[in-house]
Amino acid sequence: MTEDHAIEVRSLSKTFGDFTAVDNISFNVNKKEIFGFLGPNGAGKSTTIRMLCTLARPSGGEAKVNGYDLVREADHVRESIGLVSEKMIMYEQLTAAENLRFFGNLYQMPRPKLESRIDELLGLVNMSDWKDTQIKKYSTGMRQRINVIRALLTEPKIIFMDEPTLGLDPQTTLSIRELIRGINKNGTTVILTTHAMIEAEALSHRVAIIDHGRIVALDTPANLKKLVKEADMTVISARIPNMTPAIAGHIKALDCVTAFDQPDAYDIKVSARGSEGFDRIIDSIRHDGGNITMINTNEPTLEDVFLSITGKTMRDQAEKPKVTRHRGPSIAPRPRGR
């Protein structure tokens, strides 16, 4: 493992019976970077993260996390990482301090250091006044702040964050994003999984996109967007007050269209390749009797890159069934001396 890499993945695979969830992927994560990891549901994103957190055993390949072998040195991997899972890991009957104390004890942190760290982290997220209040009395945003700092208790070198702002209001979302930047500025490597493309673009130094179990793109957000522009890609937003399923179906059927999204009943967003893509989409709408009251061509965003590469709308992803995964070991390290 090189000195510049926090994570090295080589030919990593995971199968469930006849289904290949992760298919021979290789990539590196640099130390002190925010690494965005994106993919449609069922693409292998969560399975990859579970393997890197030692929650699932690889079927093939190898990886090193903080210099430790993922399989042979799993305990050391767990001791050196933090995990902010999509599901909040807290006990509602306990206070914030009691929750943090419980998880710190799992890692056998010395009591004075643990108490000092609890006070430091509660201050970091402006929660000191709520230290002795039961979690069940917290708002969703307050719970998520405790969920994040719980993963920071042991000062991990790498922290995995799975949908850290999911379901939060705009103000709390902003505070969590600023917290992520602060964590990274202090030297912690952050692995960020999110469906919020704006979040990935704003925070990530580099982004990997996984689809059908394979890494299909990996670069900086700026360079990924250049790929779309260089491919002669047109991104169109339009409003059609008399939108129908037939209009949408005929647009999606055009061979130049690479991605189609319909945020609401009247608005569409379409990505198309080729110099004639714009004209063909307009002709299709008008042929079906569609009335266009607004149309814009936009600079590509990371979401446009995502949809262009995966060829799926976010709605299609949400409807795709999930693969049942085996339960793995706890993220907490095994007690020493046993």
Results as ranks from 00 to 15, higher is better:
residue 323 V to M: 09
residue 199 E to W: 06
residue 109 M to N: 05
residue 194 T to Y: 04
residue 85 S to I: 00
residue 11 S to H: 14
residue 39 G to T: 08
residue 151 A to V: 00
residue 94 L to S: 07
residue 283 D to P: 02
residue 96 A to N: 06
residue 79 E to R: 14
residue 303 E to M: 06
residue 41 N to E: 07
residue 164 P to T: 08
residue 2 T to K: 13
residue 94 L to E: 01
residue 272 A to G: 13
residue 197 M to A: 10
residue 277 G to T: 00
residue 273 R to G: 11
residue 312 K to N: 04
residue 168 L to G: 06
residue 90 M to Q: 13
residue 142 M to T: 01
residue 285 I to Y: 00
residue 215 I to C: 11
residue 320 K to P: 04
residue 185 K to W: 00
residue 36 G to E: 01
residue 44 G to Y: 05
residue 98 E to G: 03
residue 1 M to V: 12
residue 152 L to G: 08
residue 161 M to K: 05
residue 193 T to C: 14
residue 53 C to R: 04
residue 264 D to N: 15
residue 99 N to S: 07
residue 103 F to Y: 15
residue 300 P to H: 07
residue 306 F to D: 04
residue 187 G to Q: 11
residue 102 F to E: 04
residue 164 P to F: 06
residue 338 R to A: 12
residue 58 P to T: 04
residue 51 M to S: 05
residue 227 L to N: 14
residue 285 I to P: 02
residue 241 P to V: 06
residue 138 Y to V: 12
residue 290 G to Q: 01
residue 271 S to M: 10
residue 76 H to M: 12
residue 245 P to D: 10
residue 168 L to D: 01
residue 295 I to G: 01
residue 116 S to D: 15
residue 319 E to F: 14
residue 253 A to W: 01
residue 289 G to H: 08
residue 302 L to K: 09
residue 141 G to D: 01
residue 120 E to D: 11
residue 244 T to H: 09
residue 70 L to T: 05
residue 69 D to F: 06
residue 37 F to K: 11
residue 290 G to C: 05
residue 3 E to G: 05
residue 195 H to Y: 05
residue 199 E to F: 08
residue 106 L to C: 09
residue 283 D to T: 09
residue 126 N to G: 12
residue 118 I to G: 03
residue 216 V to W: 11
residue 284 S to M: 14
residue 253 A to M: 01
residue 156 P to V: 08
residue 335 P to D: 04
residue 2 T to P: 12
residue 227 L to H: 14
residue 97 A to F: 07
residue 108 Q to G: 03
residue 296 N to L: 07
residue 289 G to M: 05
residue 125 V to Y: 01
residue 84 V to C: 06
residue 281 I to H: 02
residue 241 P to E: 02
residue 233 M to H: 11
residue 90 M to K: 10
residue 113 K to D: 10
residue 200 A to E: 02
residue 296 N to Q: 11
residue 212 H to G: 08
residue 263 P to W: 08
residue 241 P to M: 07
residue 118 I to H: 08
residue 112 P to E: 00
residue 136 K to F: 09
residue 155 E to D: 14
residue 33 E to G: 04
residue 294 M to R: 15
residue 115 E to R: 11
residue 298 N to D: 15
residue 288 D to E: 14
residue 257 V to W: 06
residue 300 P to V: 06
residue 287 H to F: 10
residue 288 D to L: 11
